[in-house]
Amino acid sequence: MNRPLSPNSWQYRELNAKTPGLSHLSDALISLVEAGEPVVAGSADLQYSNGLNKFAERYPDRYIQFGISEQNMVTAAAGLATTGLKPYVATFASFLGLLCCEQIRMDVAYCAQPVRLIGHHTGISLGFYGTSHHATEDIATMRAIADLTVVSPADGPQLAAAIKASADYPEPIYFRIGRGREPDVYPLDTPFTFGKAIEHMVGDEITIIACGMTVHPALEAARTLNAQGHSVGVVDMPTIKPLDRAAILAAAARSKVLMSVEEHNVLGGLGSAIAEVLTDEGAPVRLVRHGIHDEYSLIAPPTHLYAHYRLDAAGIAEVARGAMGIRKAA
């Protein structure tokens, strides 16, 4: 039973209308059902925040409302998957990647069930809702779980492409997505391949490796710096696990400095994953990890937080300028 709220409700007008990025989630799932995929979607009292209300209205028999019981939802999704269905379940990333960490490990990944976990409003995108709602540890928890793929799309179109590409993907996947207001980086229907980085710009001085909502400001920062005579490359790393090691090593061979950018604690996230590759391979390159530096993020509107943590274009450019000034360790 899913009785939708009135189209005049605040949830419809504000959440759905202002988060076009998230409408891609429902649209992509609807297209999978139309293609004959046995998709079932689930949400935990956040269907207007993640846009799944659209899917629920279109396919009520393929939608399960779990109420505020995220752990139950994740484990039940694994049970659903054992019957041959393809479950996509969504809630705030802070709850999915932390509260449900053990259910994801035990019931989804350890049981090898192809559940797709959608952690939305990740990073600090919930702004003044506060630290409880910020997800700055979910990459670290999720990438430590064996047999779990971790994906952080840059925008709505990439999310849609990744969701469509996930239909036949054998492993469970954790999608780490924003709040749906990220400006588009990619045109719709750009093909998506799990495990492949996307090289946007090539640079000798520094290559910025970004994921998720930081890709767009990283590109803007690089354009600014390159216009000022620098040589800055940008790589989008949408799949954090398995990581595109070749792309990292290619960037390391080309640039004097690498800089990771993520809306996450610098401990355990994309930067750490890159550092592991560089160390494994003995790559002689300096890595600067940019993100939240092991603190509980402040409360503020998201745009203010991105500026404060230098995760907007101006901030990323400023950190990159500093990084380019670093000489290789003697």
Partner: peptide, 10 residues
């Protein structure tokens, strides 16, 4: 919870 998922899937 896992059993519930199986029951609903069935």
């Amino acid at each position: 919870s896992a059993g519930l998922g199986m029951a609903l899937g069935g």
